[in-house]
Amino acid sequence: MLRQKIPELVCPAGSLPALKAAVDHGADTVYFGYKNDTNARNFAGLNFDQKAMVEGVRYAQSRGRHVLLAINTFAQPGRVADWQRAVDGAADLGVDAVILADVGLLDYANRRHPDLRLHLSVQGSATSYEAVNFAHREFGVRRAVLPRVLTLAQVELVIKNTPVEIEIFGFGSLCVMNEGRCWLSSYATGESPNTVGACSPAKYVKWEKSPGQMSTRLNGILIDRFGDSEPAGYPTLCKGRFEVNGDTYYALEEPTSLNVLEILPEIAGIGVAAIKVEGRQRSPTYVAQVTRTLRAALDALAGDGERFQVKPAWQADLAKVSEGSQATLGAYNRPWR
């Protein structure tokens, strides 16, 4: 029987237990970051110190899995050396690839470590094959992660016109803005993912409990208010409910999670090389739950091919860990562009 070629499953690790959970539950590849602002999930207590990195790389590679190191923020003025050191550290660690967004850093990595495999981060915001091919020609980029704003047809167009492997998001919280270009968090707090490595940093967030409701504030700005039985969302500006022309609603985005289970055959069919799970800020439990579900779905696709069917149990497992407990296909099946 002809087995369908299935995309590689790339899972997040914010801690060593999360990395082991991903590997144990069937991730082909895990990605992680340093404990500093060289990565876009720079939260207190999260991420890897040197010791944990060495152990994580050993754990994954000894089991035949790959490890990617995300250095996906933009080098800040006067501190470029910190980002370059992070790249040097990745080469020393022997990771399978680094995920970079900053053009200057891509250039540095390409010149200094010609053997280090480079992936273009979603933060690099390459949305066309011209942009992807530019990164390939200039810096030898081997894989690009496409932003979550393209339709499946657009993803296919990119794949057909580039030698670079294409990775897309398969599951996780949505960040609606063209990745790498959103400044909402900076507007409210002066800090954003591209500068300090965190959207809506926790020190600006206040959850205020009062009888019957909870209010979320970001640097004093009221983002949302939930009744006691209403599900809550992340405290980012894009997910707030605001008053627009007298109506209060999710003016920018509904708090939902992306979930591509339904279109997995199409994704594999157009030749997507890898699907990525969002969530380095989530716990090992989340990583285990999402990884085993997607593994089961991908293995079913490999075995069943055209007869592939989404199992309700998979959807239920993923719905449970979703933000806002609802799922969407995001831009992938959008009729308009």
Binding site: P17, F226, D228, S229, E230, P231, A232, G233, Q281, R282, S283, P284, T285, Y286, A288, Q289, K320, V321, E323, G324, S325
Partner: peptide
């Protein structure tokens, strides 16, 4: 580690 803290938090 049966439930994720964010899940419990989102679900109130």
């Amino acid at each position: 580690r049966q439930e994720d803290p964010d899940t419990l938090f989102f679900n109130r």
